[in-house]
């Protein structure tokens, strides 16, 4: 369970990233956050594992305060939160397996990890994670030889190998083509359902949000302006979130195909 209590964020240059956000996200939900660019989607997501600090309020993950955690507590909390990025954030020169294994570092002592020693179970865990996203056979290939969609699956596998209870995905499909977008979203959805991992995704495709989410949160200028089920999120609601009618490029458009 993730709770936001009166969370605000003001950037050093004065712009408000978040304004008085109050949210409770329950275990197993697949929440999609929508909003135009600059509405604070990334800020919201990244404040959950404190990649961004907030200026006021408090965020709790499973009852533990992220905001007040000491650095070692914070690392402990982060260990349970997987994160998926728009640009994959893999070490391109390392093998796929090495990237996935790097998700495990939070579980081991600094000393051991400095020598790259991971227990056999970790390797197996990582290979299973790769299997879950159907790229087990790429384990020993250098990451930069994979396509964008495959790289994104590697980063999902990294989150899985981490044995994360929560997955945060910041625009995970923004740099993918429509077809691979669908595969990655399917992976995320399947993992969310099969393993009951709370998943929070930032998206700017409206139709994808409606199709995959169990709950949609709309942000405008750092404020939560909508919070409801996909069924309630009509075109008109979206127009309100965006402050203007929906544009064609905010629809992925292949929804009907598969």
């Amino acid at each position: 369970m993730i709770t936001f209590e009166n969370v605000s964020k003001t950037y050093p240059n004065g712009t408000a990233g978040l304004r008085n956000v109050n949210l409770t996200i329950h275990e197993g939900e697949l929440v999609v956050i929508v909003g135009s660019s600059g509405a604070g989607k990334s800020t919201l997501l990244r404040s959950i594992n404190r990649l961004n600090d907030i200026s006021a309020g408090e965020i709790k993950v499973n009852g533990k305060s992220v905001t007040r955690a000491t650095s070692s507590e914070l690392r402990r909390i982060r260990r349970d939160i997987g994160m998926i990025f728009q640009s994959f954030n893999l070490v391109k020169r390392s093998t796929v397996l090495r990237n996935v294994l790097s998700g495990r570092v939070g579980y081991h002592s600094t000393f051991k990890t400095m020598f790259g020693l991971f227990p056999k179970e970790d390797v197996e865990l990582s290979l299973h994670a790769l299997e879950r996203v159907n790229i087990r056979e790429k384990a020993y290939i250098r990451s930069d030889q994979l396509s964008g969609g495959q790289q994104q699956r590697v980063s999902i596998a990294r989150a899985l190998a981490q044995e994360a209870r929560i997955i945060l995905a910041d625009e995970p499909v923004a740099s993918l083509d429509p077809l691979t977008t669908r595969q990655v979203m399917d992976d995320l959805k399947r993992i969310n359902q099969e393993m009951n991992i709370t998943t929070i995704i930032n998206l700017h495709f409206i139709d994808l949000a409606r199709e995959y989410a169990t709950r949609i949160i709309g942000l405008r200028a750092g404020e939560v302006v909508f919070d409801g089920t996909p069924a309630e999120a009509t075109d008109q609601v979206f127009a309100e979130i965006y402050g203007r009618p929906i544009l064609q490029d905010e629809l992925l458009g292949v929804g009907g195909v598969s």
């Binding site: 093998t95 056979e137 384990a139």
Partner: peptide, 19 residues
Amino acid sequence: MRSSLSQTSAHQPSSNAPL
């Protein structure tokens, strides 16, 4: 997470390369 072990064995040859 460790449910589909059976599939892994099929890929065993590929792990010779890393060795």
